[in-house]
């Protein structure tokens, strides 16, 4: 890369490739997310959606390519904690909350603040923090189970708790992996509303399988296939694209 790219995008991927034992999970993947944008990423199994998130959050190092955050920070040189510190939050496909901690403590741990061991050792919970957690508990509708261990929550509640943790983290960019997986239709609709709310003040990337859910979000869609972008546009546009139809239905 002779010229350092300049971009206004909050997330900028250019020519990112990752291979596992010869299998190309990402193949020169390039796309960008604008600040404040809500973006859905869809694609069949093995299209590279999760790997893309792994690269952005520092879990996987790409073999080549550029990943820039806010147009200046090279994410490929940072580890997970540093990337989280920059303001990128991630929700996993399988809800991963801290099962032994109470709902309240889960949010407390996610709450924006100094993450150094020394600080956490002597920190006292302030009034502001408590207020913020209560506020989030209201948003994710878990106020009535605040002292229950997170392990005791239902699947849908765990998904929300995780979204709540993202809110507490207050990142600039949220990566959300299949938030509607395993939810009832009513829960799915509520989740979509919640995400749209969040998207008003954050940049959000949602990876999803469920087309109804994506339609609900009503945002720009990027279709991944075999590790690179196949199509991009509104859901109606990409649904009309014959290559997308072929990938989803064909062969």
């Amino acid at each position: 890369m002779a010229y350092p790219p300049t971009t206004d995008a909050i997330l900028y991927l250019d020519g990112v490739s990752v291979s596992f034992d010869g299998f190309k999970a990402l193949n020169a993947l390039s796309f960008l997310i604008d600040p404040g944008e809500l973006r859905a990423i869809i694609g069949p199994n093995g299209a590279g959606k999760t790997t893309m998130m792994d690269v952005v959050t520092g879990k996987t190092r790409p073999d080549g390519g550029t990943v820039l955050f806010e147009g200046k920070v090279d994410l490929t040189r940072q580890d997970e904690a540093a990337i989280a510190g920059l303001g990128i939050g991630r929700k996993f496909q399988k809800p991963t909350v801290f099962e032994h901690h109470s709902v309240f403590d889960n949010l407390l741990l996610a709450l924006k603040g100094n993450r150094s061991p020394y600080r956490t050792l002597f920190a006292r919970l302030g009034r502001d923090d408590r207020g913020r957690i209560d506020e989030i508990l209201g948003i994710i509708r878990l106020g009535h189970v605040r002292e229950e261990p997170a392990g005791a929550l239902s699947h849908g509640q765990k998904q929300w708790l995780e979204i709540g943790m993202l809110l507490a983290q207050d990142p600039k960019l949220l990566l959300v992996d299949e938030p509607a997986a395993g939810m009832t239709d009513a829960e799915t609709a509520e989740t979509a509303t919640l995400l749209k709310e969040i998207a008003q003040s954050h940049s959000v990337v949602v990876v999803e399988h469920d087309m109804a859910f994506v339609r609900e979000l009503g945002c720009r869609v990027t279709v991944l296939h075999e590790g690179s972008v196949l199509a991009e546009g509104s859901l109606d546009q990409v649904s009309a694209d014959h290559r997308v139809i072929e990938v989803y239905l064909g062969r």
Binding site: A81, A84, V97, F98, E99, P117, L121, M165
Partner: peptide, 29 residues
């Protein structure tokens, strides 16, 4: 130690190490 937020982070590491890392905690420290 275990009652402090530090201790809660330790338990978080025990139960979901990589999740803790994605929250921005330096697990190794």
């Amino acid at each position: 130690v275990t009652g402090s937020t530090f201790g809660k982070v330790l338990v978080a590491i025990r139960d979901a190490e990589s999740r803790t890392r994605f929250l921005g905690y330096r697990v190794d420290h």
